[in-house]
């Protein structure tokens, strides 16, 4: 157990100046690339993630095809220079495979797969800079990319991390430095509008007494993230739409 350095100072500010329940700055853009069917870029604090979606298209391997739903194929890869210490391999190690699976799990819960039997949707996520909260950034980027590709989804899936500072105050959206110095981290992917949890993951040890309040914090964070993503989507749509003239019909 690492020494508990004060992650929340006496004045109630964290190491980077945020209050415990504030998210990092999120900026995002959809439609970054032209070749993929849908693409998005998201920056959460210093974590930068690019997502690209291809599909729905024909399955590449006949065996995997399903007659009543489309399969979602995800790949998670981190650029070699994304971490502070240079990584040797961008993907193929266990962590990447696990992340891909988690991503797939999150997306499967929202994408309307029964609309596309015998097809495949590819979602590729590339991490350019990893500074804590990698999985949430990937999920958020993937959601945006899927929306950009025009694939129908039930609702947004957003993710957020939360942790405990000073052993009792729940903190939202932990950066890498706080992860290392502090205690356990809880990652939650949820459907904010309906309040359901898609995926929950935790590192280190958490005391059962503290779990509910940290979980609540994380869910609130997901709601906030959804609001930001929603705003971005609306902006993007009205931009694109105004180019082709159908923005006028909606206003």
């Amino acid at each position: 157990m690492s020494r508990n350095r004060e992650l929340i100072s006496k004045i109630g500010l964290r190491l980077d100046g945020r209050r415990p329940d504030e998210l990092r700055r999120i900026r995002c853009k959809m439609g970054v690339f032209s070749q993929p069917d849908g693409s998005a870029y998201i920056e959460q604090g210093l974590t930068k993630v690019l997502a690209a979606v291809y599909g729905p298209h024909q399955v590449r391997s006949r065996q995997k095809a399903q007659h009543d739903a489309c399969i979602i194929n995800t790949q998670f890869s981190m650029a070699v220079f994304s971490t502070n210490e240079r990584k040797k391999r961008p993907r193929g190690d266990r962590k990447s495979t696990e992340m891909s699976m988690h991503l797939q799990q999150a997306l499967l819960s929202v994408i309307e797969t029964d609309l596309y039997p015998w097809s495949q949707i590819d979602v590729y996520v590339e991490v350019l800079h990893a500074d804590g909260g990698i999985y949430p950034a990937c999920v958020n980027a993937a959601t945006l990319a899927v929306i950009d590709a025009g694939i129908p989804i039930k609702e947004y899936v957003c993710a957020c991390t939360a942790s405990l500072g000073n052993n009792e105050v729940p903190m939202l959206d932990v950066s890498h430095q706080e992860e290392i110095l502090g205690g356990p981290t809880l990652t939650v992917a949820a459907l904010p509008m309906s309040g359901k949890i898609v995926l929950m993951e935790m590192s280190q040890r958490f005391h059962l007494d503290h779990l509910p309040k940290v979980l609540n914090k994380a869910l609130e964070g997901c709601k906030d993230v959804k609001a930001i993503l929603d705003e971005a989507v609306k902006n993007h749509v009205s931009e694109i739409g105004s180019a082709t003239g159908w923005a006028n019909t909606t206003s």
Binding site: D16, G17, R25, L46, N84
Partner: peptide, 27 residues
């Protein structure tokens, strides 16, 4: 409301890493 701070620190193996940290400005 947001800037970054950059500095170099030596890590355990003896390599030098460039660290970038966020620094939020509040009102």
């Amino acid at each position: 409301m947001f800037t970054t701070k950059c500095f170099i620190k030596k890590n355990k193996i003896g390599n030098f890493l460039k660290h970038v940290r966020e620094h939020y400005i509040r009102d």
